[in-house]
Design a protein around this nucleic acid. Structure first.
Lengths: 170, 170
DNA sequence: TGTTAATTGACAGTATACTCACGATCTAGG
DNA sequence: CCTAGATCGTGAGTATACTGTCAATTAACA
């Protein structure tokens, strides 16, 4: 019989774990984003997708998923919701029948212009409780950590993929 | 007509945003957790719930949600899955017919004992790319930020709620 | 060229994570 | 005591976030 008792376990096994803190901070970040942007019917993911499509007009869904590091399957429904809201449109690619090219509509460009300053305020609010110097330190370390751990995620960021839809010579 | 063009927007509006980095880091953390723990059929959320139930035997679902800062509705299905796996059991509270008290089963205690060192390795892996000193700085700032932003989240952490199920005198 | 391999978007399935709402139950106030 | 309000678990509805798989299409290669 394994009668050896459990080692002393406290909630610190959860509260002090990096994974828990990242989850918690993500919850808080989404909450602040949604609160600031409640006048706009737009989620953080949808916002990132709009930015990426604006920055890379004519990108396809697979490359978009690489550029913002979202799962390809998830992105399908995100794109559909953005299309229903008339913020983006999908056009079939003439040279590849599998691909649908993504473009911002006028509505999409307009909402983006309006929401950007609001989002910036939300982003600032997330770090507001820290001293300005600490904010810089935290962001610096996070950028490093996310970059160095890029390959560890299921959907690594591939920012360079974004350029492939612009006539590739190679 | 609003013919004013969009201000210059680059992907840095996404990549450098705290919210995006938190989301990305959370994705990475879950990925590493699941990879390390693939021998155990347990998610990060289920793990945290098991720890909390072990630490607070006889807690009810609502208080559990406050202790680990998970949404009450979400927790319902988490609890059900843990029950199906026979890691926890629910007993009706004699003095309050609304409440169901949560307890670890022997299976639950066993899996917890086995998985804890594996989870610790996963947690270490998340920070591994950073220098040891930087890991401490990052965790310190994160703990601060999560704590100071606690009220900003939809489901604030209420660690003290955990004690209420132990005969309250007030 | 013709078969194989890879890619694209789509779908099903699972698991968080939140919203609002509902019935059952308990508690407080009059 | 008995009603008003709070609380408990639960369910529906939406949105990520991942796992697979699939058909259609394209690319690579023998």
């Amino acid at each position: 019989m394994p009668s050896k008792p459990l080692p002393p376990i406290t909630m610190d096994a959860v509260y002090a774990a990096p994974g828990y803190l990242f989850r918690r901070m993500q919850q808080i970040a989404v909450s602040i984003f949604m609160e600031e942007c409640k006048a706009f019917d737009l989620t953080p993911v949808q916002y990132a997708a709009l930015i990426a499509i604006h920055t890379h007009p004519g990108i396809d869904a697979t490359r978009l998923s690489a550029v913002i590091a979202f799962d390809r399957s998830t992105l399908g429904s995100v794109i559909e919701r953005l299309q229903v809201k008339d913020y983006i449109e999908r056009k079939p690619a003439p040279e590849d029948k599998r691909i649908k090219l993504l473009y911002l509509t006028k509505s999409g460009a307009a909402i983006l212009r309006e929401i950007i300053p609001v989002v910036e305020r939300a982003q600032a609010r997330m770090l507001e409780p820290l001293k300005p110097a600490d904010r810089k330190v935290l962001m610096g370390l996070l950028v490093q950590l996310v970059d160095l751990n890029n390959e560890a995620s299921r959907v690594p960021l591939r920012a360079e993929d974004a350029l492939e839809h612009l006539g590739k010579a190679g």
